[in-house]
């Protein structure tokens, strides 16, 4: 497998399988998928409900374990890591943006942003912090609690949290799923900028063609397999491919 460990991949899975149940009840959520996520790239994963797109993301991000195959973050084989080592790896190398319940309600925006760093007992780089906060436009909202922020502002805090620790890779699971179109566009452009300006790697699971069109590469999943791939996608080209998949 040593040839698989190439430095231009931020994360990759080889022969990844996730199987629930057995015998007649067997469900193959992931059916031997091999895919890599290039460093500094913005990859979107699309597919109908039950296609395995969330499972792929969760296994690649170290949130869930594969039934078979291997998964790498950077050059670390995460399938060989124990519970604690995997948690620490997520803390230090992976950023997350979820659809909802992204923030801790008792902490301020600022405290939420530095949460993973605080867990590790590290101090954020002040200049970088200021830069990230400025980019997502939260400078005047840092002392607010999540309940005092709009949905869009809450997701911006989540984006800032993912960016501030400069992780190896950011996984975003339907980050715009609960937002109106204006807020969605904002969040997507922040992620796009992060890739373009800071060389950040982002992997996003979405079912929204508009959201996916912000990515540089779109993977299409169906029945636990990668069935198609599209580079430099547009909204129309994505819709076109989706029609072909019979969705």
């Amino acid at each position: 497998m040593s040839n698989a460990v190439q430095t231009n991949w931020a994360a990759q899975v080889h022969g990844a399988a996730k199987i629930y149940g057995s015998g007649e009840n067997e469900v193959r959520a992931l059916d031997h998928v091999t895919v890599g996520f290039e460093k500094g790239a913005f990859t979107a994963i699309m597919g109908p409900s039950g296609s395995g797109k969330s499972t792929l993301m969760q296994c690649a991000a170290g949130l869930d374990r594969l039934t078979a195959g291997t998964a790498f973050i950077g050059d670390v084989d995460i399938t060989k890591l124990g519970e604690k080592a995997l948690t620490l790896l997520r803390r230090d190398k992976v950023g997350f943006i979820f659809q909802q319940f992204n923030l801790l309600p008792t902490l301020t925006a600022q405290e939420n942003i530095t949460f993973p760093l605080d867990l590790a007992g590290r101090k954020p780089d002040a200049d970088w912090m200021a830069h990230v906060v400025g980019t997502v436009g939260l400078a005047d909202r840092l002392n607010h609690k999540p309940s005092e922020l709009s949905g869009g502002q809450q997701q911006r805090v989540a984006v800032a949290r993912a960016l501030v620790e400069q992780p190896e890779i950011i996984f975003a699971d339907e980050p715009t799923g609960n937002l109106d179109s204006t807020s969605s566009a904002e969040i997507l452009s922040f992620m796009e900028n992060a890739v373009r300006e800071f060389g950040q790697t982002v992997v996003m699971v979405t079912h929204d063609p508009v959201a996916a069109s912000h990515a540089s590469r779109v993977l299409f999943l169906a029945d636990g397999r990668i069935v198609d791939e599209l580079m430099a996608p547009t909204r129309d080209s994505i819709l076109d491919r989706m029609r072909n998949l019979g969705d």
């Binding site: 604690k84 997520r90 803390r91 997350f96 319940f101 309600p105 867990l119």
Partner: peptide, 16 residues
């Protein structure tokens, strides 16, 4: 429990 799941994802260890 949802919140606890989230902080675990973000890297809080079981011990923490």
């Amino acid at each position: 429990r949802r919140e606890l799941g989230m902080v675990r994802a973000l890297g809080m260890t079981r011990q923490q």
